[in-house]
Amino acid sequence: MTVAVIQFGGSNCDRDTVQALETLGFDAELAWHEDGLPADTTGIVLPGGFSYGDYLRAGAMAARSPIMDEVREAADEGMPVLGICNGAQIGCEASLTPGAFTINRSARFQCEHVSLRVENAETPWTAHYEEGEIVEFPIAHGEGRFEIEDDHLDRLEDEDRILFRYCDENGEITDEANPNGSKHNVAGVTGESDHIAVMMPHPERVSLADLGGTDGQGVLRGFGDA
């Protein structure tokens, strides 16, 4: 029984994620991508970082590494999978989730706190929040703009697969509150089934009270419910 946090060359939020999960009482361990998933894996995190130097497109190389076949197989069997930041880019590149995260509207790397509105509180990742609740998470990315064909976005919205949207402090979904130009302010989505999810903001960075907030704990607690 362990949440495997997969390390690729260039992952850099892997240890933080293990620390945050352990603080919440989960068993968690680092899994180097070449070693495959530990036998007792019950959940998977694709962590943040800059796998393979973001060559070609952020996440493109890691998405095609052999361990991702194991991740896909585990996800198909119902194992919870969460991609955070670079892990979200990897998840989309690997088609675990729809769309793509690409270069910010500003063409710059952005590292700041943002407000998010919980759009669907009935997924494992958002069940600890209320629908419409406003939470504060940090972002740290250069390629976080959610891009997707319009008809696919319609489908995602119809199927209630948006986890969070960027909002202002009052919960309004405005262009000014959209840090990276994501379509319809989307910050995180689920796969075909809601036990698979990706998001650009970092829940693990707001999971310890001593480090500035605990709003992110609810997302990580998804491993207990999924």
């Binding site: 497109r57 769309g99 793509a100 891009e147």
Partner: peptide, 9 residues
């Protein structure tokens, strides 16, 4: 199709 291009983009 498998690597160089992303069909979404």
């Amino acid at each position: 199709e498998r690597l160089l291009a992303n069909p979404t983009l």
